[in-house]
Design a protein around this nucleic acid. Structure first.
Lengths: 161, 161
DNA sequence: TCTAATAATGGGACTCAGTCTCGGAAACAG
DNA sequence: CTGTTTCCGAGACTGAGTCCCATTATTAGA
């Protein structure tokens, strides 16, 4: 449940500029949208949101922007078991979190846990290979859904919150 | 790393039969192939392998079979950051493992770790929601790749081992 | 054994996320 | 201002996965 970090957008612009990237309208729109968002967005969400704001951006440009941002570690790509990938700003400080997805309503929530991080760090050392990154995804039933539908059949299509 | 469990195929057939599923050729082929396989397979791999054995099965039937198997918890679906999902037999005893994927060559390896499982179990309790399942994916560089290409640019297309 | 009911199959059209291409527009250096 | 280079957008394309439906196979029950 990361509160959107207002400085992330600036930071992202700076990093790209220092890396010699020119400043183009499309990428800026994507960065600004991500900076204002608390939750992970899919490429599709981004396209829709920008179009709704009257700032339509070509699909290719959105994917290009996301690729560059991932490359510089400015955003993180999430696979949440849905068809599309989601993207969310990465905290410059290296502090990161993981996600729980509700199997009933598709609600995506974030959490962080030092014990889990510590366990993974130790594990990496034990495996004897260098671990750059890791993902943890928990699947369960959120409290609202647990109360609402005790034994419902899980829906095939989850909706993003 | 998992040695294929010869009894898994029988177990899968039994579970489906007891659940009232009729026995059709296509699903049996998929189950038998998965039972003989040590590593996770994509739907595409399954289609290719069956065709190569002269036991071609319609694509729709493969996906149907996989859906049913996932539904009964007989196989596990893996998202490994690639385009396609992979599937592997789930151990009936509930014992499971996670994966490390090499960012250079795409090699997929399995590991299990009691400490990690314990940390996740405690975490679930702390979050106050019921957790059915979890995935952990580590990304890093395997030993061969670490020795071979110290600072190569990671390839865009990973190949399944 | 025969039959009816119903589940499973397969081919192929379809969907949809993501990629590629290429001509044109914008940004920066000089 | 001008040339170079990067960036952009539209749309064609790819490929995984889904859907549909006529046909085939399985199984229970007569």
């Amino acid at each position: 449940m990361s509160i959107p970090d207002p400085s992330w957008g600036t930071h992202a612009h700076t990093v790209l500029e220092e890396a010699g990237h020119r400043r183009g309208g499309a990428r800026d729109e994507v960065i600004d949208l991500l900076a204002s968002q608390a939750c992970a967005l899919s490429a599709q969400d981004i396209e829709t949101a920008l179009r709704a704001q009257g700032r339509a951006v070509g699909r290719a440009s959105i994917y290009r922007a996301l690729d560059v941002l991932v490359e510089y570690g400015l955003i993180k790509r999430l696979e949440v078991g849905r068809a599309e990938a989601c993207y969310e700003p990465a905290n410059p400080g290296g502090h990161h979190h993981h996600h729980v997805v509700c199997e009933v309503c598709g609600e995506l929530a974030a959490f962080d846990d030092r014990e889990l991080e510590a366990a993974i760090a130790r594990l990496g050392a034990r495996l004897g290979m260098h671990i750059d990154d890791h993902d943890v995804l928990l699947r369960g039933t959120c409290r609202e859904c647990a109360g609402r539908v005790p034994t419902a059949t899980p829906p095939q299509h989850l909706h993003q919150h």
